[in-house]
Design a protein around this nucleic acid. Sequence first.
DNA 1: GCATATATTATACGTTCGTTTAATTGCTTT
DNA 2: AAAGCAATTAAACGAACGTATAATATATGC
Lengths: 227, 227
Amino acid sequence: MPKLEEAPQLHETQKRLLDAAEALIAVHGIAGTSLREVTELAGVNLALVKYHFGSKNGLVEAMLNRRLDPINKMRLALLDEVKRKHANGPMPLEEVLAALIRPAVEMGLENGKEGALFLRVFGRLFSEPATFMIHIHKQMGKMVKLFDAAFEQALPGLSESDMAWRKIATLGVVQHSLLMLSMLDQLPKLIQLPIKMLKGTPSTDEVVARLVAFSAAGMRAKVPSVR
Amino acid sequence: MPKLEEAPQLHETQKRLLDAAEALIAVHGIAGTSLREVTELAGVNLALVKYHFGSKNGLVEAMLNRRLDPINKMRLALLDEVKRKHANGPMPLEEVLAALIRPAVEMGLENGKEGALFLRVFGRLFSEPATFMIHIHKQMGKMVKLFDAAFEQALPGLSESDMAWRKIATLGVVQHSLLMLSMLDQLPKLIQLPIKMLKGTPSTDEVVARLVAFSAAGMRAKVPSVR
DNA sequence: GCATATATTATACGTTCGTTTAATTGCTTT
DNA sequence: AAAGCAATTAAACGAACGTATAATATATGC
């Protein structure tokens, strides 16, 4: 099975800045995180943000790319595997969904504290300024197109809008579940919401299985025609 | 069927401030919205925020309460109806879900531009500082408890963690779908993601039916035991 | 070992932020 | 008409923001 690639080597200073930005943005969002907080946490001079990344936006985009690049590459590799495996027939919906979902879960659960932090960043992405949504979309454009085609094959016969609603709901399942998963440490104290969904941390396989099962059933559901 | 209650009367100035805060926070988030932008859009003096709401936090919480109060009251009223209707037997999962989902959809689709704006605020809630999550949770505490019991009855026999995962996924479906729905105006231009999920605006009934169908199927799905 | 990039530092600029004060307006009650 | 309360105003506070610059330190190539 394809694995998440190692990050390309970069300066110690750059890595420290990306780590610090990731940790703070995970909690306070982009607008709520100042470069002074980032550089202090990184133990690095303020001006080095401009030197290495040009601007705050540059830092944020580099932070996003560092995680999204390997996730998307692994997604495409997994989808390729599924395609090869079912070259003579239709791809099972569950396997397409797993190819989409597993890399993000793996990034979140198998990279220690850094991974969990990125899950929170990922969970916030849709709430950040449009600038970054555009950036992320360019980042993911090719991947999205290939998965669109895969869904079309795994779940044939749906109208465009039927398919769009289902993909949006699925993205919601994944995004929100991973956000909650990444907040498990702090959440139960703030909120008594019974998030006893784990004793210890659940395994990657368990999380993927749960999200895939829920999403696949949701995507296959018939909608009573009240339109 | 219970309806969303009318907002209690408040000063013109207060309403203008709440409207402006809602519109700006919907787009830029709490941290990304300044009181000067809010008061300018409202056509009101800066100091009136302190006078009427005490602080920026006070303004934000009032803005949230104005929408969440009627939504939650309608949820409880709808749930009561479902309970009465099925006093002699178990409540159907779909009807419990509809009681949870319909009020938010109705607020978003049947209150003009203001409703759509609040949907975007609602979609961002989990990405805002913990302060507000705590506030919202207090707001929703009673409603959440009653729906927890209803889900337990409509979907019996699940372990605590099995139920928790399903509720989280369902919340993700609703939150993300409504966020995308509220962004339909702007999104297609920024992103070619085929959000042709509608010609014109879909009806409340259609949206509720889609979200309920997806969530109910997801909640009923068996998870292969790979744990 | 000296010149040349590369990396880091301290410091500052001009803005904008949330908050606060004190003076003033408008309206109601007597 | 006067008094009293509610609402609004203009102005300012110190703090924090992203960005920029020039001087300095560190590493690299010859």
